[in-house]
């Protein structure tokens, strides 16, 4: 499957949610779609699922627009944070409808998952707790076996233990049936090891899209005595730096350090740390503002 966005714009509720976004996601991979609140992630995922049309630009799946094309959208399963299911339906109803809607639906897998998450099939959606609702979303997402499966913050209300179960299930399901899985979450530290690729949106644009391993290789944290660090990072683009007790730490992205520095140590940041440094708004002290 191939999702391609070209110069994609979406104005949603009078806000420019996506701003000339170009991005290609393809292959059977688990891809992390990251971004701060309001970066445009949910808008992009809903465009992929065909919920609405772009304001301008193209969004295509295998060369076709998903909007109003069931031949495309039946291959896409989007599980959102909430409002996935009609409130008056029971879990049983949801499973039956999903079986009709998703061509690759795996009923026995869905059954097993209902048991695993200890759900009561006769319960109405409106009577479920947040955690149980998330579990239903996860079950539908996994059992759909959709060629494009998208989870947008799928585990609100799920505790750390069930979240870990979800990661196990996701990996297992992916290994048995490799497909394009897009996972969007703010709990980056928990899931970053699951990603093969990472795409970060910022202000409706693509900030970066890389293999997770390359992201790890393309940056470094340099620390050591202030003078030495300053010498090493002179003229480089620095993501973040801080100094304390005569020691300095600087994070570089996409930059080589040349030369030999005995007194410096080099280490790696997590994807979550990198994400924070790449997208964070700096706090300005009162009085420093112009």
């Amino acid at each position: 499957m191939k999702i391609s966005a070209t110069d994609l714009n979406k104005i949603y509720k009078k806000e420019q949610a996506l701003n000339h976004l170009s991005l290609t996601l393809e292959g059977n991979k688990i891809i992390g779609l990251l971004g701060k609140n309001g970066a445009g992630k949910t808008t992009l995922m809903r465009l992929i699922a065909g919920h609405f049309q772009p304001t301008s630009g193209q969004l295509e799946i295998n060369g076709q627009s998903p909007f109003n094309h069931y031949s495309i959208t039946r291959d896409v399963c989007l599980i959102q944070e909430n409002y996935n299911f009609y409130e008056k339906f029971t879990i049983d109803d949801i499973l039956k409808i999903s079986a009709v809607f998703y061509p690759n639906w795996n009923a026995s897998e869905a059954e097993e998952l209902v048991t695993l998450f200890k759900l009561k099939r006769k319960r109405k959606i409106s009577a479920l707790s947040k955690g149980m609702l998330s579990a239903v979303g996860i079950i539908v997402g996994l059992a759909s076996h959709s060629p494009i499966t998208i989870f947008d913050e799928p585990y609100i209300g799920l505790d750390a233990s069930y979240r870990s179960t979800f990661y196990d299930l996701l990996l297992q399901s992916y290994q048995e049936d490799p497909r394009l899985i897009i996972l969007s979450t703010h709990l980056i530290d928990e899931v970053s090891k699951l990603f093969e690729e990472v795409a970060i949106l910022h202000d409706g644009k693509l900030l970066l899209h890389e293999k997770a391993e390359d992201l790890a290789e393309n940056h470094c944290i340099v620390s050591g005595p202030v003078k030495e660090v300053d010498k090493a990072i002179e003229g480089k683009q620095v993501l973040h730096q801080s100094t304390l007790l005569g020691q300095k730490t600087a994070i570089l992205y996409d930059q080589e350090i040349d030369g030999n520095y005995d007194s410096l140590t080099f280490s790696k940041a997590s994807i979550q740390e990198l994400f924070v440094y790449l997208t964070k708004e700096e706090v300005v002290k009162h009085g420093d503002r112009n």
């Binding site: 991979k29 688990i30 870990s164 990661y167 196990d168 990996l171 297992q172 992916y174 290994q175 090891k193 699951l194 990603f195 093969e196 997770a212 391993e213």
Partner: peptide
């Protein structure tokens, strides 16, 4: 690869690398 992926909750492509 799959055993590593499962044990460490990592992407199988990472284990394969």
């Amino acid at each position: 690869t799959n055993e590593f992926a499962k044990h460490y909750q990592i992407n199988p492509a990472t284990a394969a690398k």
